[in-house]
Nucleic acid binder design. Structure first.
Lengths: 259, 259
DNA sequence: GGATGTGAATCGCTTCACAGCC
DNA sequence: GGCTGTGAAGCGATTCACATCC
């Protein structure tokens, strides 16, 4: 999960569950591919496979949007592309700014997936004066001083933060003050924002850590020694928990602190 | 959510809920920051705030790991850092390969967040012969031909795919055949993998699309015209179906939705 | 007194299974 | 006959609220 709803008591945004909203882009991508191959209709089964979900979930998801299918037949690809696009708000143009033009910011600026949906990179912003004016992905990098002007001149409501962690909150505050109400945060830090501002976060290392967790489990299933280690860890963790005593039952000493 | 568990019947990985696992890296990050500031203990309340979750959830999460706190006092920062690191498998070294050294791949290679946890970039791999040998983030780019050798020589079990969508499945297949069992996929495509291989995906444009959805809703609350558009869209969508509308059992919002 | 640890209640998502319609 | 649309059941995660312990 790479999400970060900020406050808000679970706003089931008018009937469409959050989990469904998160999958709509997936369906849209699969449908767009079908559309390009001029496939006229799909069954929930086929589309679900293409999107990597199961068909019951897909049908349920679509049922929140309306009755767009035809029983015994399936869904009209073009029509569904349109409906989902509209539901997601992609039939309109969304100017976005990217703040922090390091490696990641540059990668984002060049990322085709933004432009191909309704997103338009209105400006690239960086705090380094040496970067100012340099073209990245065909756009000149602007200095942070211009941030407020850029936001209001372009009517930007979505900002992408790709700065180092230390600068993120400050950038966030300025974006919000300038009128941005949705933020996609790539900096590894928790942003605090006022009510009404949405933040989603993508943390690259978190995803890897989750994989490492499962990977470790797999290793434990195979080799005996690894399994022993793992299960010792386990019983220390979830186990009996006799009275008190932190520290796992056996040799489980900290001593060497990891990274 | 940017996840992608592949098959597997919900493997509540031996007692620790998936949702909890996904938050452990968050806690770890907050704890590491406290550790660097030499803070000896934290309460669930403080730590929860720092990690961006609520304290009840945090305590519940920690309860799956064991009783590592002290009632009336809080949690020992260093000790908790160690326990979570170990639980996540970060006390060991994880060699990873990054395949596809375009803008994004290069950004990932340079990303400090990998190295700082237990991850070590063992190799950068790209299909472009012109890239071969060129240094990126201090490592020479290797050609795809060497993929299998690199995986087995380094005992790599985690692979990162940052190729264009068209190449991703093929790269994935080769990684898996060579022994990789966890994949972090940045390509905007659904990967199919055999049982036992974990895939997590990060799709940059999906996150933006989710923000756009909520942004659109906000706009509908403000201006009358926008609201009209939105609700027209809505009724066109959910409309017909005379029989009882899904939607909350009772007073679910009509027309103009509340904040 | 103060904060953890955790059953119990609640909520929301997923899955099932079948009625409804083409 | 085939596939959608959806109540209802199932299940996991979140939240509550308080017993427990330092």
């Amino acid at each position: 999960m790479a999400t970060g709803r900020t406050h808000r008591p679970a706003t089931r945004s008018r009937g469409i569950p959050e989990a469904t909203v998160a999958r709509l882009p997936l369906y849209l991508r699969a449908l767009t591919a079908l559309s390009e191959r001029s496939v006229p209709t799909v069954s929930s089964e086929e589309l679900a496979t293409a999107a990597g979900v199961n068909s019951a979930k897909l049908r349920k998801d679509f049922s929140y949007l309306g009755s767009y299918g035809t029983r015994g037949v399936g869904y009209d690809v073009e029509y569904l592309v349109y409906q989902i696009s509209r539901e997601l708000g992609l039939t309109q143009d969304w100017p976005v700014v990217i703040v922090g033009i390091g490696n990641l910011g540059a990668a984002l600026a060049n990322y085709g997936g933004f432009a191909s949906r309704g997103f338009r990179v209105a400006a690239l912003i960086d705090a380094d004066p040496a970067m100012a004016g340099k073209p990245v992905a065909g756009l000149p990098v602007r200095h942070t001083d211009e941030l407020e002007a850029i936001i209001s001149d372009n009517g930007v409501s979505i900002g992408v933060i790709a700065t180092p962690a230390g600068a993120a909150q400050q950038v966030c505050d300025r974006l919000v003050a300038a009128g941005v109400t949705s933020i996609l945060n790539f900096a590894p830090t928790v942003l605090s924002v006022p009510e009404g501002v949405d933040v989603r976060k993508v943390d690259l290392s978190i995803e890897l850590q989750i994989l490492a967790f499962h990977e470790q489990r797999k290793a434990g299933e195979d080799s005996a020694s690894a399994a022993a280690t793992a299960s010792a860890a386990r019983s220390g963790a979830g186990g009996v928990r006799s009275s008190a005593s932190r520290k796992g039952p056996d040799g489980d000493v900290p001593a060497v602190m990891p990274a």
